[in-house]
Nucleic acid binder design. Structure first.
Length: 350
DNA sequence: AAGCCGTGGGA
DNA sequence: TTCCCAAGGCT
């Protein structure tokens, strides 16, 4: 057997973590964990996984939930399309597969929210099928050990790493193989200041021998961030406030928010007071305007303020806005940004 | 194909 | 503070 894999496997037997999704091989839980862990650190995803399993022990439980409830449970994890696709896929498995998780690669890959990586991970870990899972960890480990400098975010690079990973998994225990490589990348061969001094592969690692560790893997694309200016209006009607569901092709799709005024440029408080609010009320008392809060996403920087308005309680809210009792606010899924504003206003507490 | 989709932690 | 980026997928 290849010396590279021998060492990785040996390392894995000693260093593998005792993670909640490694307690059994239930394909539902393997799939759930893989969706949660997309672009997400294990430490961040753990609690969410445990809460999902507790609330939805089987795919049938998840399928029978309302999307609002699933999004609420997902709140704070980010990339909310994962939650929407997770729920939609649960419904498909429940209805079309009779609640039994599909056990072949092509069917798994066809599920919403499941791409090449996740399909390979589920197929190998849950069903022991020999598909190479190529995630960020494996790009890093392979690029360093074999000295591959093709950008991992290019189509050429993806193909190259996919083929190499396919050769490596041949004849191995698929689930153990994929997990050992990922775990090695996650704990030993980490992105910044990896533990080369006590690495079992240091003698044969191309990057270490050639002082390329900090330069690998190579990425070529840099994401540009655009600035947006959000002005949230808190309409305080005494016992209740107004919420709004975010629809359309934008961030935080299907989450709730306070009625929003968006501008391309920053407004001063005096400009803000002259602007048309999302809803016009006959009598308004401006309690306060918050300071500007900067909310940073991977591709956007949102500059936001909260305008706290006290309005008459006996006033019909214009649809599709919904009037929500203050004690029920925490039942609605909201972005971290809205959650913070609500919190600072003394609302939405559990 | 390239841009979009969140959040939090660490250096 | 600023930057990188983590078990990617969709359009």
């Amino acid at each position: 057997m290849d010396n590279f894999l021998t060492n990785i496997y040996k390392w894995y037997n000693i260093n593998r973590r005792d993670l909640p999704w490694r307690k059994d091989r239930d394909p539902y839980k393997i799939w759930l964990s893989e969706i949660i862990l997309q672009q997400t650190r294990v430490e961040q995803g753990k609690n969410y996984f445990n809460r999902f399993v507790k609330n939805y022990p089987t795919v049938n439980h998840l399928a029978n939930a309302h999307e609002d409830e699933v999004l609420k449970l997902w709140q704070g994890l980010g990339y909310y399309s994962r939650a929407r696709n997770l729920h939609a896929t649960a419904k498909i498995i429940d209805a079309q597969y009779n609640g039994i998780f599909p056990n072949d690669y092509k069917s798994i890959l066809a599920l919403k929210g499941v791409g090449p990586y996740t399909a390979a991970a589920v197929a190998s870990i849950a069903f022991n099928l020999p598909y190479p899972a190529v995630d960020g960890n494996i790009y890093r480990v392979l690029s360093r050990y074999y000295g591959i400098q093709t950008p991992i975010d290019s189509s050429k690079g993806k193909k190259e790493f996919q083929e190499l990973a396919g050769e490596l998994i041949r004849g191995q225990n698929p689930g153990m193989h994929n997990q050992s490589l990922m775990e090695f990348g996650a704990l030993q061969c980490v992105p910044k200041s990896p533990q080369c001094s006590n690495c079992p592969l240091v003698d044969s690692c191309f990057a270490f021998k050639n002082r390329l560790v900090t330069h690998l893997p190579v990425k070529e694309k840099k994401t540009k961030q655009r600035h947006r200016y959000f002005y949230y209006y808190l309409y305080d009607m005494g016992d209740s406030i107004l919420l709004d569901k975010r629809l359309g092709n934008d961030i935080w799709q299907n989450l709730y928010q306070l009625p929003l005024l968006e501008r391309e440029k920053a407004l001063s408080d005096s400009e803000l007071l002259k602007s048309d609010p999302p809803i016009k009320y006959p009598e308004v008392n401006i309690k306060y305007i918050s300071g500007q809060k900067k909310h940073i996403l991977s591709h956007q920087i949102i500059h936001a303020k909260l305008i706290y308005l006290e309005v008459q309680p006996n006033f019909n809210n214009p649809l599709p806005l919904i009037r929500v009792n203050k004690k029920d606010i925490s039942k609605f899924a909201v972005s971290r940004l809205v959650e913070q504003f609500l919190h600072e206003a003394g609302l939405g507490l559990e």
